[in-house]
């Protein structure tokens, strides 16, 4: 406390390492292009000019999993596509997060049948679920901001895997 009072107007800020790392991670999180179906169009609309996602640091969508941190599963995942989804998730480097966008990715949506995986959390672990069919671009941005809140609360001890 005393240190900050003395250094406050010298342009120096003190914080914990966790806060600094989480701040850096949320400010420039690059999503991976994983638009499958109708939700992909709303994701593209969220990236375009009217509801701009680059305000939140997601300036570009990386098609390559090796260069992205966030996978937004937008659309329905069929049984043929599920192994491909898992493979791409495995190819992403740590730290990585997953947003299940839309009803089909969260729980199977309208399609309760043999061909669609009932919720993408049967294939990859999901951090945030965004509901809607398709969710409005504002709903997706709210989901992204919720993810940022979650990331800001992460501690290093949780991320260490045995």
């Amino acid at each position: 406390m005393g240190v900050e009072q003395k250094l406050g107007n010298m342009g120096i800020v003190t914080t914990t390492l966790e806060t600094a790392v989480n701040w850096a991670r949320t400010n420039a999180m690059w999503p991976m292009l994983f638009g499958l179906a109708c939700c992909a169009i709303e994701m593209m609309a969220a990236q375009a000019a009217d509801y701009d996602m680059s305000r939140f640091g997601m300036e570009l969508m990386r098609p390559s999993p090796r260069q992205s941190d966030l996978m937004i599963v937008a659309g329905r995942v069929s049984r043929k596509m599920a192994p491909v989804l898992r493979r791409l998730y495995d190819q992403m480097p740590e730290p990585k997060w997953v947003i299940a966008m839309g009803d089909c990715a969260s729980c199977g949506g309208v399609f309760n049948n043999y061909a669609i995986v009932q919720g993408v959390d049967e294939v990859v672990p999901v951090d945030v679920y965004v509901a809607g069919c398709p969710p409005r671009p504002e709903a997706l941005i709210h989901g992204v901001v919720t993810l940022f809140e979650k990331v800001k609360g992460e501690k290093f001890t949780d991320l260490v895997k045995a």
């Binding site: 499958l36 399609f111 309760n112 043999y114 061909a115």
Partner: peptide
């Protein structure tokens, strides 16, 4: 093709 097969006709 078939990576987005949704089974709409049967549903």
């Amino acid at each position: 093709i078939g990576y987005l097969h949704t089974g709409v006709e049967k549903n």
